[in-house]
Design a protein around this nucleic acid. Structure first.
Lengths: 348, 348
DNA sequence: GTGACGAATCGAATCGATTCGACTGTAATC
DNA sequence: GATTACAGTCGAATCGATTCGATTCGTCAC
C-alpha cells in the first residue's frame, strides 16, 4: 500500500497524490476527492512517515533523556510536573517525546544511535557529563537541559540553586536557629545514605556528579558553614526518613533544631522521622523543603523553595523550539521563591 | 555527511562501507579499519537512522499510549511500575518508547500519523475504545493492551479484576462486616467525586468507559449487592480522601465499617479521611486497597490486592515482541493476590 | 489574434541508507 | 590441472515519499 497505488487507482500522478495528502500545492477539488476516495477504498492510512521524514529531514521526534530507570526518575512529582509542561509545549509544536532512560552502564549499545531525532532534552538535572552529548553533537542535534549536561552547545533553563538554598537556610537562621543540618540529594550514583564528615565536604563536592545537589549544598554552607550534612542514596521519602533519623535520633543537646532538605520528598521523610521520634514539627524541629510540589498526604504545609515545574518544562520546550528554528544556544533563568509554610518556627 | 562521503574518503564502495557499520557481511579487517578511520576523521556519527529504517522497514520505536496528561497518568506509582517493566523489556529488544498522551479531544491532528512505529502499547487501562485503534489497524501496526482497547486484533495482559475485587470484598464480609462501601476509580472522563445512587449503578456501569473500574465495581457488587458506591473524579489521594469523607462523615449508625477502594492511592485517601474524623483504622473502619504499591509515607501496611506491576509491564513488552515477530494476537493472564495487612479487622 | 499569466498536473531527481546478485581472485579438493 | 568454494568487493535496484522545474491548458487583457 503506497502512494503509488493510490495515485494509480485515482488515475493521477504520484506527485499530485502527494500534494493532496500534504495539502501543499494547488489541487482541483475534484482531483483531491478522487485521490481521497482511492485511498479510502484501498485502506491507505496516509504517507509513510519514514519516507516522508527522510525526504523532509524532520522526524517530529524529540528525545527526552532521563538518567537511571524511569521508575526512579519519575517517582518525584516534581519531575512529572516538568515532564508535563514539556509535553504540552512539544505537543503544540507537533513533536513527540521519545523516552530514553540512560542506566549509566557504558558497555551496551547507544540507544540513541538508531533513532531519528530533531532535538534532545535533558529535563532533569542529571550528571554533568553524559555519554550521549558527544554523539548528539556529532549528529548535529540540538540539545536542551536543566543545568546539565554542562556544555556550551547545550541551551539551559537555569535555577539559582545555590542562592535559593542559601535563602532557605537563612530563613532558619533568621528564626534564631543555630544548630542546622542539611539533607542532600545524591551527589553521584552508587552512594548510600550517610553523614558527610565536615572535613570531607569540600572534596565530596568537587567530585559531585550532580550539579544541583552540589550547588544546593554550597548554598547551605554559604549560610551555615558549620552545618551538618547527610547525603541520601535517593531523593525519596524513605531515604529522607532514614536521613532524618540519622540527624534526630541523638541526645537532645546535639540535635539540630532546623533541617534544610534538598527536595520536598526528602523533607517529608525528615518530618516522618521527627514524628516517629515524638518530636513536633515545627515546635521541636523546623523543616524546609525544595521544589514546592503538592503532597496531599502530608499533614503540613511545607516551608519550601517553590520551583514552578510546569513552566520549567515549558521553557525547556521553548528552548527546543528555538533550537529547531536554528537559533543559537542560550540560557534562560527560572525564578524560584521561598514559601513559608507551617513547618518552620523559632527553635525551642 | 553521508555514507557516500565516508566511502569515498576510505576509497571503497558505499555497499562495503555499509557492511562495516552494520557488521553484516564479510569485510577484510584492513578495509573495515580504513572505513572507520575515514568516518572518524569526517565526524560521521553512523548511518542515518531514517534512511536505514526506511530500507529495513523497522524503526525501533514502540508507541506507548496513555490517556489524559502524563502528569495524571503517571501520578500513580502503579503506572510507573508497569512503565518501568515495559521499558526494561523493550530495552532488551532494542526498542525505544515514543510517549503519546491522548488528551481525548477529537479535533486535533492524530499525533501518531507522523511517526514510524513498530508496535503500539496501551500500558494502562484506558477507554474501551481509542481513536487510535482504527488508524493503527490501517497501518498494520500490532497493538498490545492491559484490558483496553477492546478488540480482537489487540493482544492483552488480563487481570481478573472482577474476581479480585470480589475477593477483597469477601475478605471484609468474612471478618464480619455488614455495612461495606466501595470507592471507585473514574468510570469515564469528566466526572466529579460523588455517591452513586443504588438504582443508578446498573446504568452507570453499562455506560462506563473504563473497563477496569467497571469490572472491579461488578466484583464488589457480586459480594455486596447492597454496598454503597462512591465514584471519584480521579484515582489519587485527594479524591480518595474526599470520597472517604462522603462515606464516613455521617452518624455512626449509617457509617460503613469496611471500605474497598479500587486503588491503593484511593485507599490511602480514605484512611486519611477516617483519621481526620478521629476514626481508627482498622478498629473503627477497615480499608482495602488495590495494586499493592509501596507508599512509604503511609503509616499502615495496607490490606490490598497485590498486582505485580513490573511483571505486568514485562508481559506487555513480551506480547509486543511476539507481535513484532509475526505471532498472532493472544491474551495472557496476570495473577493477583489478596495481601492481608493491618488496615482490616473485625467490625467494632 | 497574440502574449502573458496562473492554475493544475506531471516527470524526474532526491533523501541516505540496505541488500541482492554478480564479479574477482585465491585457496582447498579431487 | 580442473573444479569448487568462499572471502571480499562492488554496482544497481529499492525502500516510499517530497519537491523542483517543466508542461499543458484555459482565461483574460490589449
Amino acid at each position: 500500500m503506497t502512494l503509488r497505488d493510490v495515485a494509480d487507482t485515482a488515475g493521477v500522478s504520484i506527485s499530485t497524490a502527494s500534494l493532496v495528502f500534504s495539502g501543499r500545492g494547488p489541487v482541483a477539488a475534484a482531483t483531491a476527492d478522487k485521490v481521497r476516495t482511492a485511498a479510502q477504498s484501498l485502506g491507505y492510512a496516509g504517507p509513510d512517515p519514514l519516507a516522508s521524514s527522510l525526504r523532509q529531514g524532520r522526524s517530529g521526534t524529540v528525545a527526552v533523556i532521563v538518567e537511571d530507570r524511569l521508575l526512579h526518575a519519575f517517582r518525584d512529582p516534581f519531575a512529572l510536573t516538568v515532564l508535563d509542561g514539556l509535553a504540552q509545549e512539544l505537543d503544540a509544536m507537533g513533536q513527540s517525546m521519545l523516552l530514553i532512560a540512560d542506566p549509566g552502564g557504558e558497555e551496551q549499545a547507544n540507544p540513541l544511535a538508531g533513532h531519528a531525532l530533531d532535538a534532545a532534552v535533558f529535563p532533569l538535572c542529571g550528571r554533568t557529563d553524559s555519554p550521549f552529548v558527544e554523539h548528539l553533537l556529532a549528529r548535529d542535534i540540538p540539545m536542551v537541559g536543566a543545568g546539565s549536561p554542562r556544555d556550551d552547545r547545550v541551551s539551559h533553563v537555569l535555577v539559582d540553586e545555590r542562592g535559593a538554598s542559601r535563602a532557605a537556610t537563612e530563613h532558619l537562621l533568621d528564626l534564631g536557629h543555630t544548630r542546622v543540618a542539611h539533607v542532600l540529594m545524591p551527589l553521584g550514583p552508587r552512594h548510600s545514605t550517610r553523614a558527610v564528615a565536615p572535613g570531607d565536604a569540600t572534596v565530596e563536592l568537587e567530585r559531585a556528579a550532580y550539579p544541583d545537589a552540589r550547588d544546593r549544598t554550597l548554598g547551605f554552607l554559604d549560610a551555615a558553614p558549620d552545618g551538618r550534612l547527610v547525603e541520601t542514596a535517593e531523593a525519596d521519602v524513605a531515604e529522607g526518613e532514614r536521613a532524618g533519623r540519622l540527624l534526630l535520633d541523638v541526645p537532645p543537646g546535639q540535635r539540630p533544631t532546623g533541617i534544610v532538605a534538598q527536595s520536598d520528598l526528602l523533607a517529608a521523610g525528615v518530618i516522618r522521622a521527627a514524628e516517629a521520634l515524638r518530636l513536633d514539627v515545627p515546635d521541636d524541629v523546623s523543616v524546609v523543603g525544595f521544589d514546592g510540589v503538592e503532597l496531599p498526604w502530608l499533614d503540613h504545609r511545607l516551608t519550601t523553595i517553590v520551583q514552578p515545574g510546569e513552566p520549567k518544562g515549558r521553557l525547556l520546550g521553548q528552548l527546543a523550539r528555538d533550537a529547531l528554528a536554528g537559533e543559537p544556544t542560550r540560557d534562560v533563568p527560572l525564578e524560584v521563591t521561598l514559601r513559608v509554610g507551617s513547618t518552620t518556627a523559632p527553635p525551642p
